[in-house]
Design a protein around this nucleic acid. Structure first.
Lengths: 215, 215
DNA sequence: GTAAAATCGTTATTAAAATATCGATTGCCT
DNA sequence: AGGCAATCGATATTTTAATAACGATTTTAC
């Protein structure tokens, strides 16, 4: 690694990857430059160049740019799409069961190997286990990622249980703050937060008496 | 509005709200200070104070802090949870149908009033319409928010159709870059991107030959 | 073979967000 | 009533990410 890549940059990588594959498959592009990518994705050229430099092994050549197949490989490798990562999921409600049966995860190297919930037995042909079996299953299935889809009120308890079971990274879909020890990685996925950004901007734009009482 | 609130700050607001409600309901807290909130949520005290100052109407009082009920009201008001926002959704696959039947949205003031897809007719007791009826329905149902859950290859076409139909803000769950005119608000929700951050940090932590070919 | 154009990668500058510092205000305790 | 402790709100500093500027390299054209 040239250094550490910023979180924001990391979030841009999947977009590059998707775009590059499209260029390769639909338009048979062989070489591509950061300039072109930046123009097409409406990003700053230097930003793209830095991002790509951070993941590319061979680097790009002046005048030519990058070999698109190499760049795709490097991105997939950097993003870990090749080696599978085992995960467990807790909470098989609407959102949880959607994630459980979300085929796209396989393309990102994520494999959900066990699901947990309180009362349910079978959901979408998948057996649901009680929380007390979590530690045993995590160890046997080598799962290090935990996905939390339970209601906010139960999220912390489930989180604690996961950590006790050997989970090292938590992907939290519950709209609540979780307390984790420093060595555990926490990634929050809060639909309410995203919606807040969206509707706030919308309110500003259409200026419909805005949400702001201070006005 | 005291000014414009930053996007990151906006994303923190739902966490404050959830936390405050919990304190009010479970522990009958009446007054609360930014200091306490910051400690409990493990955030910087000044950051919390600024965030709360941006939404609070009356402000907090020294030594006492904020009246928790007022603060909750102000947050809900600021986030627009009171006034409902009509939305349409395109793409009723795994993820799309989960969002379509995700009851929690109602609490955020979001109401999905119509769903669109190519072939399906009925999903979860909801009628699915073909795209050609989008413009008409958007107008009649006063929908200004569009949720995109179609595969990446179709996302841009659907996006364009939504904009033609009068949609002003787009919530994009397709892992692809979308081109929108400047007046249209775009919020990307990319699970691949979040997963990238998570697994990258995990790879660094457990140092398992990392994903990085550069070593 | 040389000049020109395009691109890379690095270094500098700017912008934005997070964090620290400080004085002012309010309630509580003696 | 007076002083102490806690909190607010504002201003400054630091840190981080985004953007701009620049020199170096490589291909293509003449």
């Amino acid at each position: 690694m040239t250094g550490t890549i910023s979180k924001q940059a990391l979030r841009r990588l999947p977009y590059y990857l998707e775009y590059l594959k499209k260029q390769r498959d639909e338009k048979q592009v062989v070489n591509i430059s950061a300039t072109i990518v930046a123009n097409d994705l409406h990003l700053n050229e230097v930003q793209v160049r830095k991002d790509l430099a951070a993941v590319s092994v061979t680097g790009g050549k002046p005048k030519t740019g990058y070999v698109i197949t190499e760049l795709i490989t490097d991105l997939e490798c950097f993003l870990g799409y090749n080696n599978t990562k085992e995960a467990i999921i807790a909470g098989v409600g609407k959102l949880g069961s959607a994630l459980l049966s979300y085929d796209e995860f396989a393309r990102y190297g994520l494999h959900i190997v066990a699901a947990f919930d309180t009362n349910e037995e079978i959901v979408d042909n998948v057996k649901i286990f009680p929380a007390k079996k979590m530690a045993d299953l995590c160890e046997r299935l080598h799962a290090h990622i935990g996905i939390i889809c339970v209601p906010p009120s139960q999220a912390q308890a489930v989180c604690d249980e996961m950590i006790k079971s050997g989970i090292l990274a938590i992907w939290n879909f519950a709209p609540t703050h979780l307390r984790v020890p420093p060595e555990v990685i926490l990634q929050n996925e809060n639909l309410a937060a995203s919606l807040a950004v969206l509707s706030q901007n919308l309110a500003i734009e259409i200026g419909e008496g805005s949400n702001d009482r201070k006005g």
